[in-house]
Design a protein around this nucleic acid. Structure first.
Length: 567
RNA sequence: CGGGGCGUAGCGCAGUGGCAGCGCGCCUGUUUUGGGAACAGGAGGUCGGCGGUUCAAAUCCGCCCGCCCCGACCA
């Protein structure tokens, strides 16, 4: 491809709307163009990269036994109502109607329609297991699209689904897919960590996300430097610090004028947050619940939601709190009636806590769990933080920010039961299939790859997903013989089978070299008057500092050698 | 949905009531060619939209729309 022919131009300046590096670089290289918030056009360079990613995905999912299909984007809304997910997705679902006023949705994912497809094409355990996948555009009306391709409203996703006769079979499919995912990311030249993830509203046993570490990532992972443990903060179950046990002292009421926060209270009483219990009020599916946790810890709302088995959870507003007669700032779990009390297990670790006295500007000292109060539900609802203990080996957990580039998930029988995707076993019994689902966002993966592979000059593409292998940059285009010989080299490299972007423009050397750095193709070949005078060209790798002067006749062998060693 | 910011040429921005501007990019010509060249000439604008105030509005007021960031939300 000649640069003079390539659709799209590089820009020197970054549009102000692009904040993160991958977004800036993708706009400056003319890979993508924004059409509306969270909606992008993909231009030739981006598309080439995405097609390479898709090719790797197809090979690896194929190796794992997956067969490719293509499902519709428009689904009848009834299909989504039959699993309750029309309501569950709510406003995230793009909805439309056809001319006969029938409700349709633009699919955000494809469990329903895939399960439905399989339902009509299996009948016996002999038909299973099956893994099907597609690469398909998804639509989600995200509340806040952001960060270029990281979170968008229309995006291409590889989604795979496994169908097995039982949970043991599902385990096997899941492991195959997990391995396929590892292969995909490593072939894309990316380092990712598999982390335990929350399994969300559908439930299901296992769920892992593949996180690509990056400062700009939306996800927070707690990871153990000493062992393999890593979990999304939504799910992480680190061990919390325990204060030394003390003899339980008698309760004492103290005046605490205007002390409504844990830090203020601690300063006033000269104690540490770990010596306090804090009260939070949530509205859980419409019911007010009183949540108590140790003062040094935060509540993990996902864990709370799972513990309470509710679908809608938010902090209660002032009116709701006051209507229940609760006194924010001085609320405590002692003497609470007619309100569900939920406690984090941390409240049993420690003694002689300070709690609110349920009386304005008063707190109680020396309150102990069981002796002085009990909760209706006790469980782990703590947000694990850096410094907490690793649940697996006892090491100290570290926080890592990252981008979720893949998610694998055991669904169990939720969809097969709801949609009647059943098979007959060898005893003639009718049973629901056990499903798993496995997603990779293609555009997000590309953005994440750039987020992980760039410097201050531009992208540094891993060769497996670079839009071209070689950037042939011809300087001195004013010299006819240089043009002639560059053309010949371009033709030669292309015929050998390399994908070459040939910068044949009559631009100044600075412009062309900076553009080459910006786009970041892995191998650069520079032709110029002075090199051709010696029958040489210059070869430089984007991720290396120095270049080599190579005789033209040896260029092919040099490139071949580079490709062999870099994969 | 809450908080904040922004909207003026393709991009980056200046312009607080009186002729719509600058830099980059773009077009033409001449020169130039190893790290974003020089000179000369040129094209390009419903100043996000609607309404109001005013002799006069990019500028002041009101409403709306869009975009970005933080949070909420997010299979």
């Amino acid at each position: 491809m000649k640069t003079s022919f390539l659709f799209g131009k590089t820009t020197r300046e970054t549009p102000s709307e692009a904040q993160i590096r991958s977004h800036q670089l993708m706009v400056r290289t003319s890979m993508i163009q924004s059409v509306a918030s969270g909606i992008y056009s993909y231009m030739p360079l981006a598309l080439r990269s995405m097609q390479k990613i898709e090719h790797i995905i197809r090979e690896e999912i194929g190796n794992a036994g997956g067969q490719e299909v293509l499902l519709p984007t428009l689904h009848p809304v009834e299909l989504w109502e039959s699993t309750g997910r029309s309501e569950a997705f709510g406003d995230n679902l793009f909805r439309t109607k056809d001319r006969r006023n029938r409700g349709l949705v633009l699919a955000p994912t494809h469990e329903e329609v895939m399960t439905n497809l399989v339902k009509f094409n299996i009948s016996s355990y002999r038909d299973l297991p099956i893994i099907l996948y597609q690469i398909q555009t998804k639509f989600r009306d995200e509340p806040r699209p952001r960060a270029g391709l990281m979170r968008v409203r229309e995006f291409d996703m590889k989604d795979a689904y496994s169908f097995d006769i039982n949970s043991e079979g599902l385990d096997v499919s899941y492991q195959k897919m997990k391995q396929a995912y590892k292969n995909i990311f490593s072939r894309c030249g990316l380092s990712t960590i598999p982390v335990e993830a929350d399994s969300g509203a559908i439930g299901g046993k296992d769920s892992q996300e593949f996180i690509l570490p990056a400062e700009s990532g939306e996800d927070l992972v707690l990871s153990c430097p000493n062992c393999e443990y890593a979990a999304n903060v939504e799910r992480a179950e680190g061990t919390i610090p325990s204060p030394p046990t003390q003899d339980q002292l008698p309760i004492k009421e103290v005046a605490t004028p205007n002390q409504k926060t844990i830090p203020g209270l601690c300063k006033f009483l000269n104690i540490e947050p770990i010596n306090t219990l804090k009260a939070l009020f949530y509205t859980a599916d419409g019911e007010i619940v009183f949540v108590v946790t140790r003062g040094d810890l935060e509540v993990n709302e996902i864990k709370l939601k799972n513990l309470l088995k509710v679908s809608d959870l938010r902090l209660a507003n002032n009116t709701e709190v006051e209507n229940k007669g609760l006194i924010a700032g001085s609320a405590g779990p002692m003497g609470i009636k007619n309100i569900k009390l939920v406690g984090d297990s941390s409240i049993t670790k420690g003694s002689n806590f300070v709690i609110g006295a349920n009386k304005h500007d008063f707190h109680l000292l020396n309150v102990n769990y069981e002796r002085d109060f009990v909760v209706d539900i006790l469980g782990d609802i703590t947000k694990t933080e850096e410094g907490h203990g690793c649940p697996s080996c006892g090491g100290t957990l570290k926080e890592i920010r990252g981008i979720e580039v893949g998610h694998i998930f055991k669904l169990g029988t939720f969809f097969s039961e709801a949609l009647g995707c059943l098979y007959l076993n060898d005893k003639g019994e009718q049973l629901p299939v056990h499903m798993g689902c496995y997603g990779i966002g293609v555009g997000r993966l590309l953005a994440a790859a750039i987020e992980q592979n760039h410097d201050d000059k531009g992208i540094i593409f891993p060769i497996s997903i670079a839009p071209f292998h070689i950037h042939l940059v011809s300087l001195n285009t004013e010299k006819e013989e240089v043009v002639h010989q560059s053309n010949a080299l371009y033709k030669d490299l292309t015929q050998t089978g390399y994908q070459v972007l040939y910068d044949d423009r009559a631009e100044s050397p600075g412009v062309k070299l900076n553009d080459a750095d910006l786009l970041g193709l892995p191998i650069r070949i520079i032709t110029s008057n002075r090199n051709f005078n010696n029958d040489c060209a210059e070869v430089k790798l984007r991720n290396e500092k120095d270049s080599k002067i190579i005789p033209i006749k040896d260029i092919s062998a040099t490139i071949e050698n580079i490709l062999q060693t870099t994969g």
